[in-house]
């Protein structure tokens, strides 16, 4: 057992370092390929549509329920101390700082990241990527760059909509249902939420998450085994890795930003 464990660990590290290097090369090459003549603005719009607009309905429903649950749970915690006036602040700060960016990124990884991996994986399996290179079309510019920039662009917008709908959901539960005073709800929120400290830092988080989720999705698609099974496994890996990366990165970003 022991004599197998150490060499295997070494093997894993030995294998994963060049993989990380190749993934970084893909990321930088993809981001930098915007100036390439094969980069198409229309392709980018198509990706913003596919990754962003089509995820919108999911985000709105998820945000509404998240906000409503926050309202209920926050109310039951605060009512013991007679501090229900702080409910608006609680809902707004939890959504803007943590839940908005993180849940947006997790849902995005499930809804859009998986589709990205499967799409690129099957492009590889059907040798479309090889065909592009044969035609001297740069796949970094034609396939990777629009998707990376589309994800980086779409996730902060989805996040800001998630935040707003979530706060509205919290309001729906707190004020009409639980009877918290509406004026206090908004006034307390306004005096405790700052634009740069809370709202924009949350969006900065969403931007980083958009980058990392799209990067992992594109990379998993590119490194998938070119078989039906390989594409399936890569799609699973993409969602799992992206979710874990988002949660880990969130910890680091929270420590840095707030």
């Amino acid at each position: 057992m022991n004599e197998f464990f150490i060499p295997r660990l070494g093997h894993v590290v030995w294998e994963s370092v060049p993989r990380l290097g190749a993934a970084t090369r893909l990321l930088l090459g993809g981001l930098g390929a915007v100036g390439n003549r094969h980069f198409s603005f229309r392709q980018w719009l198509r990706e913003v549509y596919g990754l962003g607009v089509l995820s919108l309905a999911l985000m709105i429903v998820a945000a509404l329920f998240t906000g409503m649950v926050l309202g209920f749970q926050g109310y039951y915690a605060l009512v013991r101390f007679g501090a229900t006036s702080a409910l608006g602040t609680l809902i707004a700060l939890s959504l803007l700082r943590e839940l908005g960016p993180v849940l947006t990124a997790l849902l995005f990884a499930g809804r859009a990241g998986s589709a990205l991996t499967a799409e690129i994986g099957s492009m590889k399996a059907t040798e479309q990527l090889a065909a592009m290179e044969m035609m001297a079309v740069n796949p970094l510019a034609w396939v990777v760059a629009p998707r990376l920039w589309g994800g980086i662009f779409a996730v902060p917008i989805l996040c800001v909509i998630f935040d707003l709908v979530g706060i509205f959901g919290g309001y729906l539960v707190s004020v009409p249902v639980l009877g918290v005073d509406g004026g206090t709800f908004w006034a307390q929120m306004q005096s405790n939420v700052t634009l740069s400290g809370d709202i924009l830092n949350g969006l900065l988080k969403a931007l980083c998450f958009g980058l990392i989720v799209t990067w992992i999705a594109v990379w998993q698609g590119f490194s998938a085994k070119p078989t039906a099974e390989g594409v399936g496994a890569a799609t699973t890996r993409s969602v799992v890795m992206a979710s874990l990366a988002v949660l880990g990165l969130d910890f680091i970003l929270t420590a840095l930003l707030f």
Binding site: L96, I161, Q190
Partner: peptide, 15 residues
């Protein structure tokens, strides 16, 4: 939608 949501957040939620 994104810009409008940000504006509402800045004005209504932030101060």
């Amino acid at each position: 939608l994104g810009i409008a949501a940000l504006a509402v957040l800045a004005l209504r939620v932030g101060n």
